[in-house]
Structure formats: structure tokens, C-alpha cells
Write a protein that binds this DNA or RNA. Structure first.
Lengths: 253, 253
DNA sequence: CAAATAGTGTCTTTTAGACATTATTAA
DNA sequence: TTAATAATGTCTAAAAGACACTATTTG
């Protein structure tokens, strides 16, 4: 509970934490999972402190697991943020918390200190996520990337930068595996890319490119949809895909 | 001095620090500026603690300034490193320090703690750098990237990753401005790129591409060299260059 | 005029980009 | 047979890549 974090400060690193921008894709919209501390009525990216026994990647994975129930997610570090004004400008103070929640936390508690945030982004298959708020949180829910609630600290910037990194990566690595179901149709992956890049892509050229790169494979099945021609299902070619992740592919769209 | 850092721990953030891989280019070789703590006979990337009053970027700039005397350098954050084993595996202990230097430092001093390192790389014009070791260091000098001395912690990995980031960036941003003198010849910039990318580039196509992108401009001067045809001097087109830095250019070589 | 290196142009291949028609299914 | 959407091929333009000869200077 709260006590866990407040009293057990010896368990965590000081002055450094992780933030994890968890992206999910649903109904042609890119969403991001945000949490709301019950101390402030602003929202934050999911994040947490780093245990002394874990690496920063493990901390980010734990943060994601706590909110989504998923493990083995695609996790990408993209930048760290740190300057003395991050917390000072946020309205996140002992006084404010006392007013809102009745909790009395010392003014000089380590949680109000200057924190460097190591930021990651994570891609999830929306339908598999079971959203759960972590302890010490008032809420946790998906928000459309293009329609965010008021954000705390510099978290709006963090999301912007995460999106920038995602868009850069999508041109060099075969992202998509983690955002779609195992079998997907061309229209589905096509509109995923259009959504992430926020621009329309010629369907013929798009298909051509993915097939030429060899990262997707046509299956002999169709998705059952009524009222019109059913689309073929595709899956990723895992080897090509992993190789692409490692050494990079040119997929400039 | 040492006391500054050891006693004045309240001045610095705990559990987080910056490392800065300072690159310089000299005689067709890419070099990196390394420091040697006088406590261990291994080398490290230049680095330091973060003051409570400064941002991580300011800390990295200060680290570079202390060793090179230069300000306004090109500074690029590329990754953060953090896991509990970084220090444990390094042989960096109070006992070892006492043996080597006679300094008695408590086993539980904060300097032996788990540190997350926010890593940057910096590009410098070799000839302008006046190498100076910082306090608490036995030495500070240039080393060829391809021929490094024994490195402490995970600093060999940090250099590898910095180089990877530099090679990625060079394909998207017009790097070079900070590594060459103001006026340079085509053969000079050509061999700079060949050195960084560790592969040979066709001189005609290389020139064509830089000129087409508009980031370099031919001057009406030649470099005085005897014994053969003197090369023309070029300079960067600062506007195009800055624009390229901001929005990215495709310069795949 | 010889030595040494600088400078440059053309042709070919590959890749990117624009563009519109036919195919399949269910109701 | 119609409604709805899936699937696909060709032509053009631009960019990348391969390749070798001429130019300029000093000694």
C-alpha cells in the first residue's frame, strides 16, 4: 500500500524512477494507458520507482505488468528526463496531498525530491490487456493519444516524445507484432500504420513493401465477415521480424 | 577535491549519474576521451554526478567542459543504463581503494551504491580540445575507439552503444559540423564519414549527395598543400544544417 | 614532365510513387 | 444483382550505385 512506498524507501532507488508509456491500438485509434494518483486530479503516464534488486528494464516491465497483467511485452527505452523544475512546477506537494486526501506526508519526503525519469514505451495488444490500477492510484484507464486529459509534470512531453520515437522506429523496425492479434488482415495492419503515422498510405504500395521485406506471410484462411468479400489473414514471419528488430530494415513509408 | 564529492553528497543526486562519451576525430581515426580514477587501474568514459540544481543535460555539458574546456558542444542523449550488477561486478570497493590509495572510505558510502547512468555522446573538434583531468582522476586522455584500454563497469558497452547511436544519427542528421574545422576539404569530410561508418564510400556519390542535400557549400579558396593539386575548401550551410538537425534528412550512405 | 591527389559525369539498376479496375462474399 | 470492401499490376519518376578519366599543383 501507500506505506509500502512511503516507509520502505530503502527498497527503492532515490532520485531516479521509470516511466512507461503503454500504447494500445483499438478501433483505429492509438491509445495510451494513464494513471491518476489520488492526490492530484491530473494524470500521469504509468511509472514507478526502481527496486534496488532490479534493472531499469525490469522496473519498466514490472510497471507494465502491474497495470496490464501482461509479461514479455515489447519495451523500448527512448529517453531520460531530468531537471530540477519537473516536480517543483507540478503542484505535487505535501500540502496539496493533505488537503485532498488527508494524508500527512512530510514536506521533505523523498517522494517530492528531484527525480530523473528513465522513459520507456511499450506496445500492447489492446484486447489482451486487463486494466488494473496499482495501489496508490485513483484510476487507470486508456486515453486516446490525440485527446489526453490534463497531465502532471512533463508527462505530456513524455508522451509526445514516445510517439516521436515510435514513429521513428516504425520506419526502421517491423513494429506491429505486439499491437495486433496473431492473425490479422491487410486492412487491419494498414490502418494500424496509418494511425501511428497519422497519414494515409497507399494500400497497394504498402502491401508491396511489407511483402517484399518478407515480414508478413499470407495464410490460407480468411476472416469471416458478412456483407462483403472476406479478407485473407496474414501473420508475421517471426524470423524475418526478429532479424529486422535486431539489425534494422528500411521501411520508410 | 575528493572531499567535495564524498562529503558533499547532499549537493548531488543519489543513485543516478551521467556518462558522456566524448568523441574526437584526428588523423583519420575516431577517438574517445577516457578518464582513469586513481583508485582502479581501469578506464571509464567521462562522467559525473548530477547537481540538485542542474538538469541532466547541464550535468553532461559540465562533465564535457571540465575535461575539454569547451562549451556549446553537440550533446546527444542515447540511452540509460541501470542494473544492480553494474558496480558489484566492477571491483570498485572501499577495500580496493584503501589498498591502492590509502583513502579510507566507508563500505556503505553512497558512491558504491547502485547508479543508473544516463549516457550522452558529444562530438568535439579534436584540435580545439585542451584535455584536462578532473579532480579525483589519475589521468584523462584520448584513446582510439578501435583500441580501448581495459574498461571499468559496463563502459565498453556504453562506448559501443554510443558508436551505434552515432552511426544511426549520421544517416539522419548532418553530423560533421562539430568534428571538423570550420573550413574543410572534400577528402577530409569524406574520410571522416568513412571512419565513423567504418566502410568506404564512393567519393563521387558521396560528394553528390552532400551537395544535393545542400548542407555543404564550396568556397573560393583552396587549402595550400604542396606536391599535388590543392583541394577546395568547403563549409557547412548552417541554416540547412540546423534544419536537418531538427527535422532530419535522409543521408543513407 | 612526373608524381601525387583532387575533381567530376554518365549510364544502369533499383526503389518509390502515382494511379483504377476487378474480385469475392452475403444478403 | 447489389452493396460493401478486398485485392492487385503497371507505368513513371527519382534516387542509388557502379564506374574511370581528366585536372591541377609542386618539384
Amino acid at each position: 500500500m501507500a506505506d509500502d512506498i512511503l516507509n520502505d524507501s530503502g527498497k527503492f532507488l532515490l532520485n531516479v524512477a521509470v516511466d512507461n508509456v503503454i500504447f494500445g491500438y483499438h478501433e483505429k485509434e492509438l491509445k495510451v494507458l494513464l494513471q491518476q494518483p489520488f492526490t492530484v486530479d491530473k494524470w500521469t503516464v504509468t511509472g514507478g520507482y526502481i527496486k534496488r534488486t532490479e534493472s531499469i528494464e525490469e522496473a519498466a516491465a514490472r510497471v507494465a505488468f502491474t497495470r496490464t497483467g501482461l509479461t514479455g511485452l515489447f519495451l523500448q527505452q527512448f529517453r531520460s528526463f531530468g531537471n530540477p523544475k519537473r516536480v517543483l512546477d507540478s503542484g505535487f506537494t505535501a500540502k496539496h496531498i493533505a488537503e485532498v486526501t488527508g494524508y500527512e506526508i512530510p514536506e521533505d519526503s523523498w517522494i517530492f525530491d528531484y527525480f530523473v525519469s528513465v522513459a520507456f514505451y511499450t506496445l500492447t495488444e489492446f484486447s489482451k490487456v486487463r486494466v488494473e490500477k496499482a495501489e496508490f492510484e485513483a484510476a487507470c484507464q486508456w486515453w486516446p493519444v490525440n485527446d489526453l486529459p490534463p497531465m502532471m509534470f512533463d508527462h505530456e512531453l513524455i508522451i509526445k516524445e514516445a510517439l516521436k520515437a515510435l514513429r521513428l522506429h516504425i520506419a526502421h523496425y517491423p513494429i506491429g507484432y505486439e499491437l495486433l492479434e496473431e492473425k490479422f488482415t491487410l486492412p487491419e495492419i494498414h490502418s494500424l500504420y496509418e494511425t501511428i503515422l497519422a497519414k494515409s498510405l497507399d494500400d497497394r504500395n504498402f502491401t508491396k513493401k511489407l511483402l517484399a521485406a518478407g515480414i508478413i506471410v499470407k495464410l490460407n484462411e480468411k476472416r469471416k465477415i458478412s456483407g462483403h468479400r472476406p479478407p485473407y489473414l496474414y501473420k508475421f514471419n517471426k524470423e524475418k521480424y526478429d532479424e529486422g528488430l535486431k539489425s534494422g530494415v528500411e521501411l520508410v513509408f
